[in-house]
Design a binder for these strands. Structure first.
Lengths: 360, 360
DNA sequence: CTGTTAGCGCCTTCAA
DNA sequence: TTGAAGGCGCTAACAG
């Protein structure tokens, strides 16, 4: 029925072992023999049987990239960059070589699905796994993840974290080598500088639309914000000026209305990310207020659309593409891990039209 | 070293076959036996060996979703929806059941990579493949794709096209059953209605920023545009009023400057999609022109950010999520293919603030 | 309902 | 440089 290695061997009049060797390029094969084999492969339109190959070799060429939300460019950009590094130059005809199948898995932010995908990848004996985005801060989930990652590492799967802090100290299993590298964004620093910018402009009443609770990204950005406030001696009931919600446009919209209802005197709104900021802008405008004259609005991430908002959004730029690419290289062993396996990736404050000094 | 099925069998004091049966749930197993096996699985922390399983069963639980650009929400939304249908309810603990590994592959729009991914998926004996987005109209590539898809179908892989027209008639190999279903967007109709809207408003000088050449999506949208123009008897050198470029923001920006340079009297710009439209808006504004008073701008797709543009973007809504979900269901056999294997998915004109009657 | 028996297709020592 | 042979871990008929 389907063409097998043996068929190719028969046609090329060599042994199956030889065909295997030319396909994998791991052993010396005479040029003329190789030629003959390759011709037979083409003539028969042979395609390697991945499962059989993986079973015998005890490894596979699958590399998984986990993302929280594939419809969000924040993840799309990182995943695309990683995939580019992993899949190699497009010229490769997919015949052999270190050809890897980089593949992205959408967890939808569900911890359950995250674990499920990891198990599925483990089943496939994945060569590497890149996990992007912030982590859930639930102890049970952290423990489960640590254990799972340790298992993966045991089986030889390289694990790289991208945009996520390293596993907490409390997970001894995971400490030694389970995670090859963790590239973490400077969310705290970025959040702090953003709010400092607002404070410098003269704002003293700032509302904060935070992301979902129990997520590292959310917490770090919020901590940066509050650290700036504290350093400037700005008091106020911070909890009353903070509303949590998912990283969506509608969350930004709803939260902003709520914040402005709680304190109509707010002169600035800081959003958990750019998408949320867009919703915040819509809410502000709908209330008949102008940006930035009446209310300044700021975001985080600097996604592509942010510069096209009107007015252009002040935000914190994260080098998503570069980070994703680096994670991909790390996973492929094309780059050495940073010392200690941890690297913090800096962020840049992008000051644009959506923020200005408060009225009067 | 690693735990195998035999280990579990030994611990549960049953045969390997029985363990396999409870894991796959395909054959009746006594409740008490199942209980014992499951316990052993947990105690040993056993994870099925995917390659071995796929080899023996001659199928795998991998489902590939091909996208042109993972960083573009257009694809992200479809892929996410498809993945949701394929991966099943999140409650599933990933133990067994029809658990599939839905995985997205980023071709970057490269035909070469598209073929490579298909080969890699073929290697893995993928259960299904969902191909999203427009197709390249190069005869050689079409032939290669048809042949490849026919091979995949032969091997039992379900192939579903989402947002892409069915394979051309000229590919006999592919006609009978190679593609399970093709869900195609009504790009032509949407393009026509959009331009009719502009014509109704009174526009007669309309510039068009088209997508990359040789792509079905590009061609169909443009054809719709020109059909509307022709029906309204609007003459003019259409080629001079059309500029092609990639589906990017900067392409929209550059092309719009070029169009306005060629004909400063343009009162409207139609963009290939919303991302391109954003770039067009930026260019228009930068030239000191107002939207929509001086120039109307329209997009296509109705991506989430479009409603937040200022003014909100008039565009053609494509039900991306619904289409992706349906493609996923089709791939899983959860839904019957449409008659003839082809379904056209309608589009909706969203009239918003970025279009208005021309001046004077 | 459960055990036994063969492979699935390939890789990898070991010899030649 | 090449061939022969065994086994990777699991599933799928068959029996029983």
């Amino acid at each position: 029925m389907t063409v097998t290695l043996a068929d190719v061997a028969a046609r090329a009049r060599v042994s199956p072992a030889t065909v295997s060797r030319v396909l994998n390029g791991n052993y010396p094969v005479a040029a003329t023999t190789r030629e003959r084999v390759l011709r037979a492969v083409d003539e028969l339109d042979y395609v390697l049987n991945g499962p059989a190959s993986s079973l015998a070799a005890a490894t596979s060429d699958l590399v998984g990239i986990l993302v929280n939300d594939i419809a969000d460019p924040f993840f799309g950009i990182m995943a695309g960059a990683a995939q580019t590094e992993i899949s190699g130059p497009e010229g490769s005809s997919g015949r052999a070589r270190g050809e890897k199948l980089a593949v992205v898995c959408n967890t939808g932010g569900s911890p359950q699905r995250e674990l499920t995908y990891l198990t599925l990848l483990q089943r496939q004996r994945a060569a590497a796994v890149v996990i992007t985005g912030g982590a859930l801060e639930d102890p049970a989930h952290i423990a489960a993840m640590s254990a799972k990652l340790a298992r993966l590492a045991d089986a030889g799967t390289k694990v790289v974290l991208c945009g996520r802090p390293p596993l907490p100290e409390g997970a001894p299993e995971a400490r030694n080598g389970s995670v090859l590298a963790a590239l973490t964004f400077d969310n705290r620093g970025g959040g702090r500088r953003l709010t400092e910018h607002l404070l410098t402009l003269g704002h003293r009443s700032i509302g904060y639309v935070a992301g979902p609770t129990e997520r590292t990204t959310t917490r770090h950005r919020l901590e940066g914000h509050r650290a700036a406030l504290a350093a400037a001696g700005v008091a106020g009931d911070q909890d009353r000026l903070t509303v949590h919600g998912p990283y969506t446009r509608s969350s930004g919209y709803d939260a902003t209305r709520e914040l402005l209802r709680r304190d109509p005197g707010l002169t600035a709104i800081v959003a958990a990310n750019d998408t949320v900021a867009l919703g915040a802008c819509a809410a502000v405008r709908e209330l008949g207020l102008r940006i930035p004259e009446d209310v300044s609005v700021a975001g985080f991430d600097d996604l592509p659309f942010s510069v096209d908002a009107v007015p252009a959004l002040t935000t914190v730029r994260l080098p998503l593409f570069a980070a994703g690419a680096r994670a991909g290289r790390l996973a492929m062993g094309k780059e050495d891990p940073p010392p200690g396996g941890i690297a913090t990736i800096g962020s840049d404050l992008m000051t644009r039209g959506s923020t200005a000094p408060p009225r009067g």
